[in-house]
Design a protein around this nucleic acid. Structure first.
Lengths: 204, 204
DNA sequence: TGTACATCAGTGAACGCGCGTTCACTGATGTAC
DNA sequence: TGTACATCAGTGAACGCGCGTTCACTGATGTAC
């Protein structure tokens, strides 16, 4: 950061970061290719040396988001093991923390309207993120009483959906307000859900 | 519909419906005031007789969505009573049905980025929708064993978040794919959650 | 029933703007000899 | 170490476009008398 001659040095990444900043400030709609270029200190035309166009720049921002996301989820989950409750509550907290700390990435990933298969790289990153979550659910499956054990992919979907719903409805300036913080809301929700699965009883 | 002289007759509503159609087709980003006017068979300038601008037109579409939504939720819930499971599963199904049948409304309500208090009318409609859901949760609260009874506003928030998350992640072309239909996913999720609350055991 | 007039919904032309994208170019970098 | 040259990242001017919004206007409607 700093020296700038004719060549930028790392324009590609600078553009991604400019895009993230703009998305955070104005939402996916407010972001424009030209403004991102300006913010990176470069002519709009220069963007085309690194991206096919506006959409592909957003796709790259989303891809990086999914990579960070997958790493965080994996780490959070592992750090709560071997307790099912602790592992999943840590994952839930990490989910909200990710949405808060990386709002630009979160928006690019989930609210920008770009298709998850917009680029092969993005598709690979979303797949990896999903499989981290499913892996976690798989591991826990063993602790669930056999008669009430749903497929792992189903209950990872439940946790993901609940987390995403809490972020969208309660952690933005959005729709629903609640006397509870998003964190409390999600933690309580996951707790009730796990109890419904019979996981907590078996666990502690 | 049909006769059109110099005066349209019901332009305001025609514009709302044009907006919904465009939003369904192209998302909230793709919708433009000019195109909505064209679709309604009218000059862009005519829009300003009925709305303060582009954003207020979307706000009105969202408002109508919340009214329909509140009615549907209330009806679905009532029709499942007195069984807690039946009532909440009916509500979940109705939620997904609403998102499917009224995608334009759903997008305007939850994905358009307009603030819920953009207009007083919209704010009133969102409040009403929220209180319908909370009312439902309140009624059910009585059936929950006292030692594990969370505030009604909390568990209505859980159900709402789970439903919304399922719609966003699984019922659009989105992010996560699952071997299960959104309907099955949501129904199973609600079932597990209610069991965790002790509602199902007390109920059947 | 007829006429004058107020009201107001919609027209159409115009505006300034910033967008995404293209193009021929030029300046900087790095490599072969 | 020096020079020639290929590579390629970024420039800057230009484009066509459609957007949201404004304005003075006109045509239709409805009401008072």
């Amino acid at each position: 950061m700093g020296k700038r001659g004719y060549h930028h040095g790392n324009l590609r990444q600078a553009l991604v970061e400019a895009a993230l900043t703009l998305i955070e400030e104005k939402g996916p709609t407010g972001f424009t290719l030209s403004e991102a270029a300006k913010l990176a200190g470069v002519t709009p035309a220069a963007v085309y040396r690194h991206f096919a166009g506006r959409e592909d720049l957003i796709a790259e921002a989303a891809r990086q988001g999914f990579e960070i996301f997958a790493d965080l989820m994996k780490y959070a989950y592992d750090s709560g093991l071997p307790s099912a409750l602790a592992a999943f509550e840590a994952t839930g907290r990490a989910y909200l923390a990710f949405a808060r700390k990386h709002p630009g990435h979160y928006i690019a990933m989930f609210e920008s309207g770009i298709a998850p298969n917009r680029t092969p790289e993005l598709a690979a990153a979303t797949t990896r993120a999903r499989s981290v979550l499913e892996q976690a659910a798989e591991t826990l499956s063993e602790h669930i009483p056999a008669d009430r054990r749903p497929p792992a992919s189903m209950f990872s979907a439940h946790i993901w959906a609940l987390s995403h719903g809490v972020v969208e409805l309660y952690a933005r300036n959005n729709i629903a307000t609640s006397p509870f913080s998003p964190e409390d809301l999600l933690e309580a929700g996951i707790g009730i859900y796990l109890r419904g699965l019979g996981l907590i009883a078996a666990d502690q």
